[in-house]
Design a protein around this nucleic acid. Structure first.
Lengths: 296, 296
DNA sequence: CTGAAAGCGCTAACAT
DNA sequence: ATGTTAGCGCTTTCAG
């Protein structure tokens, strides 16, 4: 017929097939190197399957989460990958009403939801980090954490407390502090921790950004790392391997996590029966140059 | 009627209104902190207008660009923001056939296309950087560039050459080198440059990643920055402000660029007549600690 | 001002 | 094998 640039109308096809060939990705912040790596992995497998990826940035605002989910319903998205920060009863109802496959990324779905998740074992990884510090004979270990609303932050804190307790080491008063996810916050936290817990010889920071901020303060104070203070982080960001930093940290397979979550979602979409098997990735302790055995 | 969770079908509405209320964003790599900042800005304004953002990662692969553009046509996206690396005749025809508003982000559209762009003035910003080095009495200046296929890389290189020439300073043999966008590449480039141009006292690196890689090599060789070698970068990444780095560099308003491009697109969509006015942002030279006047 | 009908561009079911 | 028709869920138009 007309061989002159005719393009089928996918909207019409979607209407009759009740499939939009589009999946939604809801993230708090695409600017986070961690999340953008996962997003890249997701986009890769999704687009290879001929699907589109609609991306929504929530900025951790409840209202934005809701409006994304609502519009996902209206546009008949075929599936969702979400990193949600507000999973209460109302939100759960919204998700249920969607009646489409959903996988949680980096978050656990509430027990009553029966949806799969893809994440890394924050707890286990953090235990490993603290145990490493313990194996270096540190006994006065401080903790720089993330704000209370952060799921990953809570898990890593829980691991810190449990590991200390399991080894019969009391957590000193003033040994823990919580900040935001910024260099500045790590810097200030390290300063405050040093004041409130002077015996401290090591600190476990709940993420690399915080750890690097801490390192900055120590460098400014001419407190030598690792000779006078050992630091371990979590995330293994690109920057953590920089010559001046060489942070000992816990690595997670970021892009792979994204890809797996997308693959999981695609099979859920393609095979209606699919029994949603969550995936929990393992972490790896990357030993670099910010930890040393304690000086006896 | 039924007040029990009824959601209008946006697909049906799209079909009749010939509007998908969705715009497309085509980027080479969402993992690039620069691009993800822009993406965040775009998403913000787009979603505030009730639109969806479909994001496609091209990985600088021509085939992926084409397939994204084609599927944009099929799904009747209402507009596009693209960072394209392959704007030849065929690609231009694809864009024209779309018959929807398109804005180029961080790329110039070919003259025959009459589409607006949003970018920063790489040329002017780079001239400023080189002039700064010149004002510090450096005469033996090296250049670490990006690969030839990079538009921004070419502009920054052109600025380097022009500024040197304008000041009657010949560019020495072996004073320029080109790498990829990685710390590793900056590291190796600095090493090679030092060998091929031993008189060199300063280098302009076409981006911060390269500059930081160069700084790493210098630190390993115990070549003092800025006493023995001055470095200036381009981008003003978060990491460039780290205590150990404090890189003098050229800053660009990343998130704002994204927001402006989205606003531009939205007005093009809403007002059919719109006469597409491109936006060229200015850069700012951020002076930190990696440059010093030459030692006479 | 409210209500029925036509139609967007496709696919699937049906008839030729 | 090919051709015709109904209808997806809306919006818009036109009639009542």
């Amino acid at each position: 017929m007309k061989e002159l640039n005719y393009t089928p109308n996918a909207v019409a096809r979607s209407l009759i097939q009740r499939k939009s060939f589009t999946i939604g990705l809801m993230l708090p912040d695409i600017t986070d190197p961690f999340l953008s790596s996962m997003a890249q992995g997701i986009e890769e497998v999704i687009s290879d399957s001929g699907y589109h990826l609609v991306y929504g940035n929530t900025s951790r605002i409840r209202e934005k989460e809701e409006s994304f989910l609502l519009s996902a319903a209206q546009r008949k998205l075929d599936g969702l990958i979400i990193t949600s920060d507000y999973m209460d009863g109302e939100m759960m109802q919204v998700l249920r009403n969607l009646e489409i496959p959903i996988v949680f990324l980096r978050r656990r779905p509430p027990a009553e939801l029966d949806m799969p998740f893809v994440d890394v074992d924050h707890y286990k990884g953090s235990c490993r980090a603290v145990e490493y510090l313990l194996s270096l004979h540190h006994r006065h270990i401080g903790f720089i954490g993330m704000p209370d609303f952060s799921y990953t932050g809570r898990e890593r804190y829980r691991a810190f407390c449990d590991t200390m307790q399991k080894n019969n080491i009391p957590i000193a008063e003033g040994a823990t502090i919580f900040g935001e996810r910024s260099y500045q916050s790590g810097y200030e936290s390290m300063r405050d921790l040093t004041a409130s817990y002077p015996e401290m010889t090591a600190v476990f920071a709940a993420n690399d950004i915080l750890a690097i901020g801490a390192l900055e303060w120590l460098a400014e104070q001419n407190i030598s790392v690792p000779d006078q203070m050992s630091i371990v982080g979590f995330d293994n960001l690109e920057v953590s391997n920089l010559h001046w930093i060489k942070l000992t940290t816990v690595a997670q397979p970021r892009k792979e996590m994204g890809m797996k979550s997308a693959e999981l979602l695609m099979t859920m979409i393609q095979e209606k029966d699919s029994k949603a098997a969550s995936i929990l990735f393992d972490t790896e302790l990357i030993i670099r140059r910010t930890c040393a055995p304690i000086n006896l």
